[in-house]
Design a protein around this nucleic acid. Structure first.
Lengths: 143, 143
DNA sequence: TCCCTTATTGATAGTTTTTTTCAATAAGGA
DNA sequence: TCCTTATTGAAAAAAACTATCAATAAGGGA
């Protein structure tokens, strides 16, 4: 996630202060942040982004493939910065920490199987794993 | 999806007219229905369910494992009736038709791989495929 | 079968999430 | 530095979801 400013420029968008702030907050966080969470974070850091701007920025980033939307347990959405390409995440149900992983052959085989079984032609997929990260596993064992 | 009334009773819940209506609408539909969609369907059929009742019924059904919540493209949630156990869906992006499929070994291997790579212990997963059903594929070829 | 207890319903109102609108601001090329 | 125009953010509206509570109906017991 280095050349995102260039990517913005190339796509004809401006590199603005609020957009930098949103990306920075996401990069610093390491866990999925909801628009509301970003809003509050920005306020504690005296950046005071508008909530509307946050929504628009996330939408733009998502279209450009800079962030990825994941589904949070409480029903709303969180956003994670991603490297280019298609990605999936394992999210820790305790601390929220998220780790990216690539699709892999297992997934391709799974999809091929389903296509054969159902006759559907699969275009996209949504895969998200929820569990405990190593740190939270260790904590749990102590308790 | 036959013994759902017995399942309700066994769990100590009553088999009410609105609950039957919600289940019937879901079974008849074959595609994921949002609470709002269920509300409107019930009105066209002169059943006039309360929106609140629909939310509560879906929540109950989900806890009992009678329906499954899927993520719709527009960001809100749809519900599908399911047979007992854990399930995944392929959803047609054109007509909305949904077909259930079981996890399978590919998925188990994928998850084992990720656990090994990341150190996370995976407890749950969210897998949803989006594509074209056979009927809509055929339609597209004609056009 | 009828009654009585209590789970369930649904209307109203409230909260949260997301979108729309539009005048004021600032990015970045000339 | 100036000028054009994308971008911002405040306010208001729309949509999604939740809480409250009196009225209703499910279904066990007489």
């Amino acid at each position: 996630m280095s050349g995102w400013k260039e990517l913005l420029t190339q796509a004809g968008y401006r590199v603005t202060e609020p957009r930098c702030a949103v990306m920075q907050l996401l990069l610093d966080s390491g866990m999925p942040l909801s628009p509301q969470a970003l809003f509050e974070s920005s306020r504690t850091q005296r950046q005071n982004l508008g909530l509307v701007t946050i929504y628009r920025t996330l939408e733009l980033f998502e279209v450009l493939g800079l962030v990825c939307r994941v589904h949070l347990k409480d029903g709303c959405h969180g956003y994670l910065p991603v490297s280019p390409g298609h990605h999936h995440f394992v999210i820790c149900e305790h601390c929220g920490g998220a780790v990216e992983f690539p699709g892999g052959d297992d997934l391709r085989m799974l999809i091929a199987d389903i296509e054969a079984q159902t006759g559907y032609r699969v275009a996209e997929h949504l895969l998200q794993l929820i569990g405990l990260c190593p740190v939270c596993q260790a904590q749990r064992e102590l308790a």
